[in-house]
Design a protein around this nucleic acid. Structure first.
Lengths: 247, 247
DNA sequence: CTCCAATCGCGTACGCCGTACTCGAAATGG
DNA sequence: CCATTTCGAGTACGGCGTACGCGATTGGAG
């Protein structure tokens, strides 16, 4: 009786743009709504991109949006794929897998930092057209080594996992800064600082202490820190490829 | 005037249990509230663990909880660290890094699947006592190879990133199943199936097509699939360690 | 023993949210 | 011109996090 409310993915529900037949013409579009939502989320966070707020930005009422998007969750899928669409990649990989995956990683990071809200989402891969394009690029970069497609998926996944978590870390600071008005220095001093001090003095976590004392990573620029971790991941991939050396 | 509402991390705000001095004795505790919240989230999802619902479970009013927890966000931090506390690890690593990291990965996965809601969260690392314990174990496992602490952080991070994303994938299905009542088969057939078919027939994404046709990963059991990817990650780490072979 | 000050339990209330329902306005084809 | 279809959007509902305030409870000082 109850159960599955929605039948198919948003990508299978075409909007009725340029439709023929009777009825009033639509005054908006999915792309327009998605764009407005992304802009609000960029500026004020995903929570601020409410249906009312998006509608207001477009000069209309909240319920009008539901002529274009079934649910807010679907709108978020659209936002995610739109953002993935900003990742600039050549049509086909260059042939040097390390260059290709490095490019992909940096592009993905740049887009992630430009749209901080996307890092706070953890959902199943969106499977929109743009996500598929990126997926295909990543796997193509590892093609030609005689690997099984499952191996390529697994290896390229390591890059994706790393980038996602690295960006999430970087975002963490920005995101919290907006909510509390603290910048990173204040945060360290006020919010976790006292606890870190407490923990260090307790001596219960030796490796954590070593990291606080000897760790250089946090002194690097974000870019350098990102590249540092990425190199480790790429070295790991190199180890799985035939006829290559780690450096 | 306005600005930073909250001064310090939840871990520096001790609850007034066993406090001395005047005033009524507290009737509940953070641990009790956290436990109730985790149980609700396990059964019905994080969204169901509202302040009202948790209070109801404890037989009290919603606002009473705020005597123990400043904000719902802080409660979520407590929930996360409580859950990380379920990861069972020996006091110290065994000395075989691969065994240790494999154990950690499987333990983390098991806990993650037991508390599916935690995978849907993407936030800065919690830095609670239990999270620190796990962090210390992971780094200790890689100690003794002469690596810099930054390298150990980076390498063990690869395992953490992989596990997090693998668990998130597995959870994705369970989570969606609860919301829509579809199991994985129905989902594939109804929700994305038509779109996948459409995409495959378009021929625009050759690697995606190869994955659909040749991919064996999705036919493996979840356990085997997890181990498959984990091996790749561990091989990658092995490549960075001196005096070891990949297999 | 009394009474004050601190603390707890919790009811009420406010301003948000997503979205179901509804209906008039607009656009077309016959 | 009119029946039919679609769009725009106002109203309303139930639920959320949580600010506020007040009576009940408790320990310590006099």
């Amino acid at each position: 009786m109850s159960g599955a409310e929605q039948q198919v993915s948003i990508w299978m529900r075409p909007e009725n743009v340029d439709r023929s037949g009777p009825g009033r013409r639509p005054g908006y579009s999915r792309a327009q709504i998605t764009r407005a939502a992304v802009e609000i989320a960029d500026r004020e966070g995903l929570d601020a991109a409410t249906m009312r707020r998006i509608a207001q930005e477009l000069g209309t009422g909240a319920m009008s949006l539901y002529r274009y998007v079934p649910k807010r969750d679907d709108l978020i899928d659209l936002m995610l794929d739109a953002v993935v669409g900003e990742i600039e990649l050549p049509e086909r990989p260059s042939g040097d897998w390390r260059t290709d995956l490095t490019l992909l990683a940096h592009q993905t990071r740049a887009v992630g930092l430009r749209h901080p809200w996307q890092a706070t989402l953890a959902r199943r891969p969106t499977l929109g057209p743009n996500s598929l394009r990126v997926y295909d690029f990543a796997l193509s970069a590892l093609d030609g080594f005689g690997l099984h497609v499952d191996e390529m998926t697994s290896l390229s996944g390591m890059v994706g996992d790393y980038v996602a978590s690295a960006v999430r870390d970087e975002i963490g600071w920005l995101d919290h800064a907006r909510h509390t008005g603290m910048d990173r220095k204040q945060w360290m001093a006020q919010y976790v600082g006292p606890y870190v001090k407490h923990v260090v003095e307790s001596g219960k976590y030796p490796m954590f202490n070593r990291n606080i004392r000897e760790g250089r990573l946090s002194h690097l620029s974000p870019d350098a820190r990102f590249q540092y971790g990425l190199n480790h991941v790429l070295n790991g991939i190199a180890a799985a490829l035939p006829n290559t050396t780690t450096r």
